[in-house]
Amino acid sequence: MRNVLAAAAIVLPGLVAPAFAHPHVWVTAKAQILFAPDGRIAGFRHVWTFDEMYSAFATQGLGKDGKPPTKEELAPLAKTNVESLAEFQYFTVAKTGPKFYEFGAPKDYELEADDKKIVTLSFTLPLKEPVSAKKPFTFMVYDPTYFVDFELEKTDPVTLKDAPAGCSLTTFHPDPLGKDDTTKLNESFFSGLSPGADFGIKLATRSIVACP
């Protein structure tokens, strides 16, 4: 429950949720895997579009004459969200085999609202050190506790930017939940508790990068 409360404070700063059923925040995500000039993976460009409830909270009191708020008005919230996500490793997994990689400070972040006041957070997340993709490199975006439901865009959810010739990207979607896991998830909606400390990985999409 401590982690769930912390997640609520980060993803919904200032909002007191009446219950902590899972998931509580929905995000449609897409990403670019960024390559350095030497052909190694340097980081990621995240684009996360939030659900109507979070968007309504984020834009409350902002904008003029019914218009959506500007990037400048949303800049303080963008900064708060991006900086706070560090505690949760930015809901991002980068690994080769059993080896997990660490991230540097996010940059080039911004929060935008469209004509319907739906907000999208974009930011670049560098790796602390660039990584070779000569061995299969795994990239995932998910919340282990499933407090936040990350669903990838239907079309080109993950792409490669400035990748060397011959690099490939393969996406693996999760298998449907089994009976036991479905029961756990359903029970979590009524109990307000997490379905499991690492339940989110069962619903996570894996992207595998391999370069010659």
Rank of each mutant, 00 (worst) to 15 (best):
A9F: 12
V11Q: 00
L12D: 09
L12W: 00
P13I: 05
P13A: 11
G14K: 02
V16H: 08
P18S: 02
P18Q: 07
A19T: 14
A21V: 05
H22Y: 10
H22S: 03
H22V: 04
P23N: 09
V25T: 13
W26K: 06
W26C: 08
V27H: 00
T28R: 08
T28N: 14
T28M: 08
A29Q: 10
A29H: 05
A31F: 01
L34K: 00
F35R: 01
F35A: 06
R40I: 12
A42M: 02
G43A: 03
G43K: 00
G43C: 04
H46S: 04
H46I: 09
H46K: 03
W48G: 01
T49R: 00
T49W: 01
D51A: 02
D51V: 04
D51Q: 12
E52V: 13
M53F: 15
M53D: 14
M53A: 14
Y54K: 05
Y54W: 06
Y54F: 08
Y54S: 11
Y54E: 08
A56T: 13
A56Y: 02
T59R: 02
T59L: 09
Q60L: 11
G61A: 12
G61R: 08
L62C: 12
D65C: 15
D65P: 12
G66Q: 15
G66E: 10
G66N: 14
G66R: 10
K67E: 15
P68D: 11
P68L: 03
E72Q: 09
L74A: 01
L74R: 00
L77Y: 04
T80M: 06
T80W: 05
T80S: 10
T80L: 11
T80H: 11
N81Q: 13
V82E: 05
V82S: 10
V82P: 00
E83G: 09
E83D: 13
A86Y: 11
E87P: 01
F88Y: 10
F88T: 07
F88P: 02
Y90H: 10
Y90D: 04
F91I: 08
F91Y: 11
V93C: 08
V93N: 11
V93L: 12
K95S: 10
T96A: 12
P98M: 01
K99P: 05
K99R: 10
F100E: 14
